[in-house]
Amino acid sequence: MTSKTNTLVSVAIQWAMQADHPPFSEVDNSRIRRWAKACFMDRADITIRLVGEEEGRELNRDFRGKDYATNVLTFPMDMPDLGANSGLPVFMADIVICPAVVEREAAEQGKDPIDHLAHLIIHGCLHAQGYVHESENQAELMENREIEILKRFRISNPYVISAKK
């Protein structure tokens, strides 16, 4: 039986960098889709683009004014509320992930790189739904939601400092 969420959430994946780059060569598109779909309770149409550092840097510079490649960028589309019966997605967004940055951060933080990738995909999907971390209360709400979703995949709390550096 197909779950309701699976039929309502569309996730397109674009690999703009080497898909066979370790340690991410074992991460297939279906796994990425499961992480993303777990974030949504309403209809959504999401594109996740995995990019090299040059493209990540250009996007971060052009859209955020920061001249470096970052781990995740979310570009939500401002959707008019046409009602639940419109058949249109409630959320639409492009999410850009830079695996080289994800891998580097994971090593620096003593995290499993695939778990870190899952966390950042979930983080980007929550941004697509309006979650932010500008204030302490907003950050706590977003982090708690991330932790809850990650638990479904048996991924530990990413905000706990690892002792295995």
Rank of each mutant, 00 (worst) to 15 (best):
M41F: 14
M41L: 15
D42S: 13
D42G: 10
D42E: 09
D42Y: 09
D42W: 10
R43W: 05
R43I: 15
R43T: 11
A44N: 03
A44K: 04
D45C: 11
D45W: 05
D45S: 15
D45M: 15
D45Q: 14
T47E: 05
I48F: 06
I48L: 04
I48K: 07
I48Q: 13
I48G: 06
R49N: 13
R49M: 13
R49F: 10
R49S: 15
L50G: 02
L50Q: 09
V51K: 00
V51A: 07
V51G: 01
V51Y: 02
V51F: 09
V51E: 01
G52K: 01
E53P: 13
E53I: 15
E54M: 14
E54V: 06
E54L: 11
E54A: 15
E55P: 03
E55G: 05
E55K: 05
G56E: 00
G56S: 05
R57E: 14
R57K: 13
R57A: 12
R57Q: 12
R57T: 12
E58S: 10
E58N: 12
E58P: 01
E58A: 08
E58Q: 02
E58V: 11
E58L: 00
L59Q: 04
L59T: 04
N60F: 05
N60Y: 01
N60L: 02
N60H: 03
R61P: 05
R61E: 05
R61S: 13
R61W: 04
D62N: 05
D62I: 11
F63R: 08
F63W: 12
F63P: 00
F63A: 09
R64K: 11
R64Y: 13
R64V: 07
R64M: 07
R64T: 14
G65Y: 01
G65E: 07
G65N: 02
K66I: 12
K66N: 14
K66G: 02
K66R: 11
D67M: 01
D67V: 08
D67K: 00
D67A: 12
D67N: 09
D67C: 03
D67P: 00
D67I: 02
Y68M: 11
Y68F: 13
A69Q: 06
A69N: 00
A69G: 00
A69D: 01
A69V: 04
T70A: 13
T70L: 07
T70H: 08
N71L: 08
N71V: 11
N71G: 10
N71I: 15
V72I: 07
V72F: 03
L73G: 03
L73I: 12
L73M: 08
T74I: 02
T74K: 05
T74D: 03
F75C: 06
F75W: 06
